[in-house]
């Protein structure tokens, strides 16, 4: 699905380019769920930003192929329409644009990209109602402005809802669990689990092991100082929760 090889990327900070990713390697096959954990500042969100094409980041070295194509050849909207979805850590409020309007546009852009006709209003509403149930969002939310006045939990549920409607092949979840209470966390996790299948891959970026109790990953990676320094199964996440990151720092010799 996505293959990241020796990825180096810098971000501009106070007028200077600072290297954040320093040779990251990662391969995700269709149907796999990968979790990336790491201390603050290790480059987790930078990875999400670089993959999705956010401005302000510069790739200085390395290669990423998405569906066997050079990812960096595509604009952010093309990556989205190719099937990449980013669940934002801080979803944006868009006053005056309803969830329905926003999603209809997004969905129809994707359909146009695939050479399909826009969805009829009735079909769209049916789809939206069905998917809204996944994350337990009420009917009236669809006519509300995108994320405006939403609670933290509602915003995150809305991200998962959008994901469900847009039906991506590869979803990146950037600290989706941050700021969620346990009930909201379960709703979000249930939503994600119901979308898991043999063809869809996930990259779950998280600070805490907690989310991984509910979304069981196939692989767990530890990101430190811009590189993946250790990989393992679910048990690695549990060990990190118990013992922190210090033992890995010692093991791999990262300052």
């Amino acid at each position: 699905m996505i293959n990241i090889h020796n990825l180096h990327a810098s971000v501009e900070s106070e007028g200077q380019m600072v290297e954040i990713l320093k040779g990251l390697d990662l391969n995700i096959n269709p149907g796999e769920v990968h979790a990336i954990m790491g201390p603050n500042g290790s480059g987790k969100s930078t990875l999400a930003a670089v993959l999705s094409g956010k401005e302000g980041y510069e790739v200085t070295e390395g290669k990423v192929t998405f569906k066997d194509q050079d990812l960096f050849e595509w604009e952010p909207e093309e990556r989205a329409n190719e099937g990449m979805f980013l669940a934002f850590q801080y979803p944006i409020e868009v006053p005056g644009v309803s969830n329905a309007n926003f999603l209809k546009e997004a969905l129809n852009e994707k359909r146009a990209y695939q050479g399909l006709e826009p969805l009829k209003a009735g079909e769209f509403l049916k789809l939206v109602r069905e998917k809204a149930k996944l994350v337990e969002l009420g009917d009236n939310f669809i006519s509300r402005s995108v994320n405006e006045g939403f609670s933290g939990g509602e915003k995150k549920r809305n991200e998962i809802f959008q994901m469900a409607v847009l039906d991506p092949e590869f979803a990146i979840m950037d600290e989706t669990d941050s700021g969620l209470d346990i009930d909201a966390l379960k709703i979000v996790a249930n939503g994600v689990n119901s979308l898991r299948d043999d063809n869809r891959s996930f990259l779950i970026i998280t600070h805490y092991q907690r989310l991984l109790d509910y979304i069981i990953p196939d692989y767990v990676h530890v990101l430190m100082d811009g590189r993946i320094v250790k990989s393992g199964g679910k048990e690695l996440a549990l060990k990190l929760e118990e013992q922190g990151y210090d033992w890995i720092k010692e093991e791999v010799g990262v300052a």
């Binding site: 999705s52 094409g53 956010k54 401005e55 302000g56 604009e75 952010p76 909207e77 990556r79 989205a80 329409n81 979805f85 980013l86 934002f88 979803p91 944006i92 868009v94 006053p95 005056g96 644009v97 309007n101 926003f102 999603l103 546009e105 997004a106 852009e109 994707k110 990209y113 402005s145 959008q162 847009l166």
Partner: peptide
């Protein structure tokens, strides 16, 4: 940039995004 990127990441290009944001702003 943040709001435009949110639209872009959902597959909506900048021109269309601007139109939607401006119309939303002016809707009333």
């Amino acid at each position: 940039e943040d709001i435009l990127f949110y639209f872009n990441q959902r597959g909506i290009d900048t021109e269309k995004a601007t139109e939607m944001i401006v119309n939303g702003f002016s809707r009333e």
